[in-house]
Amino acid sequence: MNPALDDTDRTIVNALQGGFPLVPRPFAVVAASLGLDEDDLIERVRRLVGNGVLSRFGPLFQAERLGGAVTLAAMAVPEARFDAVAEMVGAFPEVAHNYQREHTLNMWFVVAAETPAGLAETLTRIGVLTGLAVHNFPRLAEYYIGLRLDA
C-alpha cells in the first residue's frame, strides 16, 4: 500500500471513513477512541489532505437528494477523435468524471446538473457538439452499502 503512511495514518484513514461525530469537539472524541491527541489527529488529517491521500475531509453529499440530477452516460468514440472528444466533453462543467474504458462504449462520464431538465439539455448538447450518440444510463435502483478502503 502507500509507503508514505505510518501505522497511525492507516488507523486514521481506516477509522474515519464515516461517523465523524456531530459534537462540538469531534476530533477530541475520535482522538480519544484511537488513543491519540486531538491536535495531533487534526495535524495528521491536515497532512493526509495536503499530500492527497485524502481527497478531502468532510461530508460526502449525495447529489440527487440535494435536488440535483445525476446520470452515467457513455459514447462509442472513434479512436482517431478520442482526445478531441474527451476535451469537448471535459469542457462541460456538468461533467464530473470521465473515464476511458476498454469497450466499444469507450468513454464513460458522470453528468450532474441542478435540475433534471438541465441534465437532459447537457446530454443533448454533448450529442450535438460531438456528433455522437450519447447513451444514458440513469440509476434505477441503488444497492449501496458503503466502501471501506483499507489503507
Binding site: 471513513q17 461517523g19 485524502l54 481527497s55 478531502r56 475531509f57 449525495q62 437528494r65 449501496y144 478502503l149
Partner: peptide, 12 residues
C-alpha cells in the same frame, strides 16, 4: 435523509 452519505475521510 440520505442527502449526506457519510462524514469523514474521503480517500483517494
Amino acid at each position: 435523509q440520505g442527502a449526506i452519505r457519510r462524514i469523514g475521510a474521503i480517500p483517494n
